[in-house]
């Protein structure tokens, strides 16, 4: 997994609540058996005017000029600013894969759906929950200032706005550690093989039918 520490990234605002993972990556792209290459199809149905299918040359497809990701001022954005309950719906990890592949590293929203939130950390994406009023303020600032960037410092857990204002954010200590060091969960868990084996032996004795 890619390490995350500091980012000074352009912000793109996605002003809708309850953006679901079907919208982030439509199901026809889930037929892939790979983990990469989903970026060009992130938000496919909103981003393009035609219907996307796997295998199409996305560079030749007609773009929806009204969709925020297509506006020239937001090209190269690395911070996605969103509304409540971002990432709800299907548990597909293809959603964070698509966002990461597109180039996002940070997602800021007042709330996230649980599974999506979890999946982000496993793919080098940092989801940040901020107060709804602060998020709303950021939406206004982004709209008013072309080229609006945010500095995100994971180590210190602070976001700095272009006018120098600092916004602290929470992040789970274990996830922060993994993200800062690019650590893979499986490797970490396998350090506890003895604990797992010990548990398994007790569990088997208590509920033998689970192992019959």
């Amino acid at each position: 997994m890619r390490k995350f520490n500091l980012l000074d990234g352009l912000v793109v605002p996605l002003d809708r609540a309850n953006v679901d993972t079907d919208a982030i990556i439509p199901k026809q792209f889930l037929k892939s058996i790979k983990r990469s290459g989903f970026g060009p199809n992130a938000f496919d149905e909103w981003r393009y005017l035609d219907h996307g299918e796997p295998g199409m040359d996305n560079s030749k497809r007609p773009l929806n000029p009204d969709f925020v990701l297509n506006q020239s001022r937001y090209q190269g954005a690395q911070v996605l600013l969103a509304r409540e309950n971002f990432g709800c719906g299907s548990s597909r990890e293809h959603a964070p894969w698509a966002l990461e592949d597109y180039g996002f590293q940070v997602i800021i929203a007042p709330s996230f759906a649980d599974i999506f939130f979890n999946n982000c950390f496993k793919n080098g994406l940092l989801p940040i929950k901020l107060d709804a009023a602060i998020v709303d303020g950021l939406f206004k600032s982004v709209a008013a200032n072309e080229g609006y960037k945010l500095k995100v410092d994971l180590e210190r857990q602070v976001i700095t706005t272009p006018d120098g204002k600092q916004i602290a954010f929470e992040v789970d200590a274990f996830r922060k550690h993994c993200l800062l060091n690019g650590l893979d969960d499986i490797g970490l868990t396998l350090q506890h093989v003895e604990d797992i084996k010990g548990f398994e032996a007790k569990h088997r004795a208590a509920q033998p039918w689970l192992y019959a």
């Binding site: 990890e93 964070p96 979890n118 999946n119 496993k122 793919n123 969960d185 868990t189 398994e200």
Partner: peptide, 20 residues
């Protein structure tokens, strides 16, 4: 509960899930 693909792999490999 539902899990993402990284977690599917994690459970396959360790029989465990990291959770709170």
């Amino acid at each position: 509960h539902g899990i993402g693909t990284s977690e599917v792999e994690h459970v396959m490999a360790t029989q465990c899930l990291v959770a709170k």
